[in-house]
Amino acid sequence: MCGALFCLGVAATRAVRPPVPSGGLPGGGGAQRHSLFRRFFHWGGFLSVAILLFSGLAMYRSPILPEPGGPAALWFAWHQWGTPAFLALMAAHLVHEYRVSGEPPHMWLGRHGSRKYRPAQILFHWAVAANLVALALTGAVLWKPLRALLPLSLLGLGWEFIFYNRILHGLFTATFMALLLAHVYFALAVRENWARMRSMLTGWDTG
Results as ranks from 00 to 15, higher is better:
Val128Leu: 11
Ser114Thr: 05
Leu146Phe: 11
Ser101Gly: 10
Leu146Tyr: 06
Met197Ile: 08
Arg196Met: 15
Gly156Cys: 14
Thr13Glu: 13
Thr206Leu: 13
Leu94Ile: 14
Trp204Val: 08
Arg17Cys: 11
Glu67Ile: 06
His125Phe: 15
Gln80Phe: 10
Thr202Leu: 02
His93Trp: 01
Met90Gln: 05
Lys144Tyr: 15
His169Gln: 05
Met197Trp: 07
Gly82Val: 06
Gly139Asp: 03
Ala174Trp: 07
Trp126Tyr: 08
Glu103Gly: 11
Leu157Trp: 09
Ala187Ile: 07
Leu5Lys: 04
Thr175Tyr: 03
Val133Ser: 02
Leu150Asp: 01
Leu179Phe: 00
Pro119Leu: 12
Gly158Lys: 09
Pro104Ile: 13
Gly156Ile: 15
Ala92Tyr: 00
Arg118Ala: 14
Asn193Thr: 08
Trp43Tyr: 07
Ser35Gln: 07
Pro66Ala: 09
Pro71Phe: 15
Leu171Cys: 12
Pro104Glu: 12
Leu135Pro: 01
Gly70Val: 12
Phe163Gln: 09
Leu179Lys: 04
Leu57Lys: 03
Val10Leu: 12
Ser35Leu: 02
Pro104Trp: 02
Ala136Phe: 00
Arg166Ile: 08
His125Gly: 10
Leu146Trp: 11
Ala58Leu: 09
Gly27Asp: 03
Ala187Ser: 14
His96Val: 08
Leu181Asp: 07
Gly28Asn: 04
Arg99Thr: 15
Ser55Phe: 00
Gly30Trp: 00
Met90Ser: 07
Ile162Trp: 03
Gly110Pro: 06
Arg147Val: 05
Pro21Ser: 13
His169Arg: 04
Pro21Glu: 09
Trp194Met: 11
Ser62Pro: 13
Thr83Ile: 10
Val10Lys: 06
Ala120Thr: 15
Leu168Val: 03
Pro151Asp: 04
Asn165Cys: 15
Arg14Tyr: 13
Ser199Lys: 05
Gly70Cys: 13
Pro63Tyr: 01
Ala85Ile: 13
Gly27Thr: 07
Ser101Glu: 10
Leu152Tyr: 02
Gly102Phe: 07
Leu137Met: 06
Tyr117Gln: 11
His79Phe: 03
Ala134Trp: 02
Val16Asn: 12
Gly170Tyr: 06
Arg111Cys: 13
Val10Pro: 01
Ala31Ile: 04
Thr175Asn: 03
Gly24Arg: 15
Glu103His: 14
Leu188Lys: 07
Phe76Met: 11
Gly102Val: 14
